[in-house]
Amino acid sequence: MSSAPEHPSETATERFASRRTLNVLWSQNHLMVLGYIRSVVIDFHMADDVLQETAAAVAERFDDYDSSRPFLPWALGIARNKVLVTLRANSRDRCVFDHELVTQLSETYAELETSNNDVQEALSDCVTHLHRRARKLLELRYVRDLPANAIAQATGTTAGAAGMALHRIRKVLRDCVQSKLGTAMQGGD
């Protein structure tokens, strides 16, 4: 019962191909965009909301994207605007970056190398090598999304000590990833 393709379905095919391109570009870059957003919007859930809005805007405006230019800076530009809107709406928070810094950071992220999937695989492996207590802390911070004093309460310590412990665990993980990938992940420490 299949009929010969008519004009409307050809347009659908083109749209489908364009969407596939968008899918590929987005899946290659979305974590960098998320990383940028999270570095400015600390709260995980608010950051996720901003990512959603960014993703929607990227999809809507994809026809305007000049494919001869790199995708990440373009997407980060959209993300930056969404971030600024969110920060303005939550301007009661004292500890947020100003407009200039938000813009500067979007440029910083645009220049980061995008081989992020290798990093994730290495990181996943490194996490499995951690001691039980360390993994527990990471779980409380990153899965249960607890604030510092809740983590402190859960582990019977202080917020400061918990923060320091997380810092050291991340340092260990960074060194581990670095040794696995052999890349110079400049990150201080």
Partner: peptide
């Protein structure tokens, strides 16, 4: 340097 730290932080959440 900050961006690298933040990427580790983001990746860590995904991995965990």
């Amino acid at each position: 340097q900050f961006a690298h730290a933040a990427m580790l932080h983001t990746n860590l959440q995904v991995v965990m």
